[in-house]
Write a protein that binds this DNA or RNA. Structure first.
Length: 270
DNA sequence: CTAAGGACCTGTCGGC
DNA sequence: TGCCGACAGGTCCTTA
């Protein structure tokens, strides 16, 4: 589920149910996620109020008086608000029971997600070397040009590197490169400045649009019925290998790049 | 330092 | 129907 738009959608969905609410109890059924859930987490947050729900990159940050709860959804994670006492399924690993009579439940079949803690006054290593937010003004043409200078790595790998810019996952990397007319395998250092500028624009447009559409998915997602998916979204290339390019009609090509499926149009992307 | 590959884990889907 | 391999929205860590 979680590319940045889904994480932001999740944030918006849970925030009204969680902010300014006290955590009365923590239930960890499966502590073995990407990293172990800290054993003392319950002591640190029980009885304390969530002050705010923020997002940095694909991390959700729940601010408490003494520190920050860091949540990551990995490849298959989701967060839902449910009535307290709802029976837990096989992959419902962690419950945050709220004073409101609801609970915030982390479900994650593949367990690539994470539940971590950052004490006030410290910076968690995972958050230490993140690049700018893609929708932030700090992510602009000049910045991306500087990142690309002298780099031989494929442009797609570069924009998926969180030290360069956060939140660009496989789907939207494919989509943004298509929009910008850039071949995903092109060496980052060998792309003209003007084309990198349009790539910056494409990334912003694609993500902003997806966040807007995520709003539609939101109710299902958080409400707990429907599977979150991209069925509502207009993806030009992702998942369309072999189908005609929407612009020129040429069948879209697929290659592996850094183990990730990469779909593009040989005609339109150079 | 950069770049590429493996690793983590489960579920699903297509082919035989 | 059953089994097996390939693949899936992420990203850290190791290796070259």
């Amino acid at each position: 589920m979680p590319e940045l738009p889904e994480v932001e959608t999740t944030r918006r969905g849970i925030a009204p149910h969680v902010e300014h609410k006290r955590i009365t109890e923590l239930q960890v059924r499966q502590p073995r996620l990407r990293w172990p859930v800290p054993e003392q987490l319950g002591q640190w947050i029980q009885g304390d109020q969530v002050q705010s729900v923020e997002r940095r990159a694909k991390y959700l940050l729940l601010r408490f008086a003494r520190g920050t709860l860091i949540l990551h959804l990995g490849m298959s994670g989701s967060l839902r608000i449910q009535p307290a006492g709802s029976p837990a399924g096989k992959h419902d690993h962690v419950d945050f029971i709220l004073e409101s009579g609801q609970l915030l439940r982390l479900t994650d079949p593949r367990r690539f997600g994470a539940v971590l803690w950052q004490e006030n006054g410290t910076l968690h290593p995972l958050l230490a070397s993140l690049g700018p937010e893609p929708l932030d003004n700090a992510f602009d043409a000049e910045y991306l040009q500087a990142c690309c200078k002298g780099r031989k790595t494929a442009i797609k790998s570069l924009i998926m590197n969180a030290e360069v810019v956060v939140g660009v996952g496989n789907i939207y990397a494919n989509e943004a490169l298509y929009r910008a007319g850039i071949n995903p395998r092109r060496a980052a250092g060998r792309i003209a400045a003007a084309r990198l500028a349009s790539l910056v624009d494409a990334i912003k447009v694609v993500l902003a649009q997806a966040i807007e559409q995520g709003g539609t998915t939101l109710k299902d997602f958080v409400g707990g019925d429907g599977k979150p998916g991209y069925f509502k979204q207009e993806l030009a290339v992702y998942g369309r290998a072999g189908e005609p390019c929407l612009s020129c009609g040429e069948p879209l090509s697929e290659v592996k790049l850094g183990q990730r499926s990469t779909v593009f149009c040989r005609q339109c992307q150079r």
